[in-house]
Design a protein around this nucleic acid. Structure first.
Length: 592
DNA sequence: AAAAAAC
């Protein structure tokens, strides 16, 4: 029985074959946060287990020239490389987003280079449903994204599309609406950014003139996310993808000076990344119009449509000047997608494709999950024990993310840790935006290797090297738990998630036990003595706890009403749906 | 009840 943090971590990973059994000539999965590193520096210093030709290999895909002569999609002789319009203005002073990547991340040593065996993806369970679903591609070269974008893909060291990209990109490029369940760590942002950028590049000449209305911006794509930091992260990614394509990406979020954002918007914007509140503000000031929107993407879509956000989203999407579904293209991405949220989402979609992409040995298999019974009053000393054990093991740069329920609780725990000689910082909604961003940087850099956070940090944030997530206070919703623990165990690395459980969490007992069981975790016997009373909104339904199932396939949905979905309905199950039954509650995963 | 999200 593992008694310490390091015991757990050491025995956990690789059992499922991920990262092991490399076949040397195949591609290696390159996790997002490693993709921009120079091929030589960090990697040459350490042995590379899956030493295939992929690291530092400039070609991508499964062969064929990376960037070939490209046919002009418009049929006209012109291309977006023509220098004749405002399209090109400002390209010279566009900062190189790839430049500082090497400095941005400190060295983390050998384990850095361990990759995930991409072969594991061959068995990935994928479900698509909807009418006439475009087939997946195998390489970036299989689709025509445009030369400038292809160059950036290479700069990002993306060798081969991840599963979600393989499926989502052709669907998006075909102009279809999409509801996709996918994991952030596997290239979700790119999956919706590439087709959007490509589409904007293709249409740019015809739609060139920025409006005559000087102070109104007319973005062609809108990407919404539930937190400021996630919007910032998406913006950073999107800027890399669109570098020197002429496609301008602007981010707008609250808590920082609006004038800066207004100025950016005035300089032209094709893709606007935003949080809902600030966007509403901009719309009310008539500084942004949505009438030119061709693409709408909701990241963490289930969060965006839950009770807290739904009114704002409806206002933005349905009550301003945005083109309706069928005219614009709508892309919804999330990991967890409860049926009731899927039902709401229908209002925003037109004849959409549903896509669920899992991967072999889902994230939760890489994460050792532990539940410990801890009285409310003992939580601090128990946390202290864990941290001391961690420190005793001398693990450098082991970042620990501690989730608490309330903002006040975050402040006081941070303070308590600091006075007890554990450098900690915190992030929550009562802190200033400056403080929030500083805290995140300080944590990422290892300067304060403990971050106490509310749910503001639960979703989407890609923080490399988080090796331990502590649910100091458990969330009420099992989905939130899944998102929280998904901050660790990323990129094929081991991770540990420790939960402090007591009577207050009774309602989570059974969904938590189920999730852990599905993830092949040891479930403590005492856990089943709780629960009973707790209702899990997904408990009775079919398909296990994972939201990755098209709710249109539920009989209940069609019962009574007209069976609008039955005809032309097609579902396409690719592998992994054997006797174990993907939809029959054996599925686990830390869909992110 | 809490958290997030505009000024």
């Amino acid at each position: 029985m593992p008694t310490s943090w390091s015991d757990s971590v050491n025995k956990a990973p690789t059992a499922n074959g991920i990262g092991a059994n490399s076949s040397s000539q195949t591609s290696t999965y390159v996790p997002p946060h490693l993709r921009n590193r120079p091929p030589s520096a960090a990697l040459a210093s350490a042995p590379v287990p899956n030493a295939g030709p992929t690291w530092g290999n400039d070609s991508y895909g499964q062969g064929g020239p990376a960037v070939g002569p490209r046919k002009d999609r418009n049929g006209s002789g012109s291309s977006w490389n023509n220098r004749n319009s405002s399209w090109d203005r400002g390209r010279e002073r566009e900062a190189n987003p790839f430049q500082n990547d090497a400095d941005a991340e400190p060295e983390y040593g050998e384990q850095e280079s361990s990759g995930i065996n991409f072969d594991a993806y061959d068995d990935i369970p994928v479900e698509t449903s909807g009418k006439d679903v475009p087939p997946p591609v195998n390489t970036f070269a299989d689709i025509d994204l445009g030369e400038a974008l292809n160059i950036n893909i290479r700069r990002c060291k993306y060798v081969k599309p991840t599963p979600v990209q393989r499926y989502a990109m052709p669907i998006s490029l075909a102009g279809r609406d999409l509801m996709a369940c996918a994991q952030t760590g596997s290239g979700k942002t790119a999956a919706f950014c590439f087709p959007i950028i490509s589409g904007i590049m293709t249409s740019c000449q015809s739609d060139q003139r920025q409006s005559r209305m000087q102070h109104m911006a007319f973005p062609q794509a809108l990407i919404l996310s539930p937190t400021r930091e996630l919007s910032i992260q998406i913006h950073q990614e999107a800027k890399k993808f669109s570098y020197q394509t002429g496609v301008k990406v602007v981010v707008a979020y609250g808590g920082s000076p609006i004038n800066v954002q207004l100025r950016e918007l005035e300089r032209g914007v094709h893709i606007l990344v935003a949080t809902p509140g600030r966007l509403v503000d901009l719309l009310e000031r008539a500084r942004v119009s949505l009438q030119k929107i061709k693409y709408l993407a909701l990241d963490e879509a289930d969060r965006m449509l839950d009770m807290g956000f739904e009114p704002q989203i409806r206002r933005i999407v349905q009550q301003m000047d945005m083109p309706p579904p069928g005219i614009r293209q709508t892309l919804l991405f999330s990991a967890t997608f409860p049926k009731e949220i899927q039902r709401l989402a229908v209002d925003f979609l037109s004849s959409y494709v549903f896509l669920a992409v899992g991967r072999v040995g889902s994230s939760t298999d890489l994460i050792v999950q532990r539940v410990e019974y801890v009285f409310e009053t003992d939580k601090r000393s128990h946390l202290m024990d864990l941290l001391h054990a961690q420190r005793a093991n001398g693990i450098k740069q082991a970042l620990t993310l501690v989730f608490v329920e309330t903002k006040k609780g975050a402040d006081s725990l941070e303070h308590w840790l600091c006075i007890n000689d554990f450098p900690a910082t915190s992030i929550h909604g009562d802190r200033t935006q400056q403080e929030r961003e500083y805290a995140l940087r300080s944590f990422k850099s290892g300067k304060t290797p403990i971050l106490v956070a509310t749910d503001v940090a639960a979703r989407g944030l890609d923080i490399p090297h988080v090796s331990h997530v502590v649910n100091f206070d458990l969330p009420n919703d099992i989905d939130d738990y899944v998102h929280r623990i998904g901050r660790t165990g990323r990129a094929g690395k081991s991770g540990l998630a420790t939960a402090f459980f007591n009577e207050k969490n009774s309602s989570l007992a059974s969904p938590l036990a189920n999730l852990m069981q599905e993830s092949n975790q040891e479930v403590p016997a005492w856990l089943s003595t709780f629960g009973g009373g707790g209702r899990n909104r997904r408990g009775g339904g079919s398909g296990g706890r994972f939201g990755g199932r098209d709710f249109r396939r539920d009989n209940a949905y069609n019962r009574g009403g007209q069976d609008f979905y039955a005809s032309n309905y097609n579902t396409n199950n690719n592998r992994g749906y054997g006797a174990s039954g993907y939809g029959s509650s054996t599925v686990t995963s830390a869909w992110d």
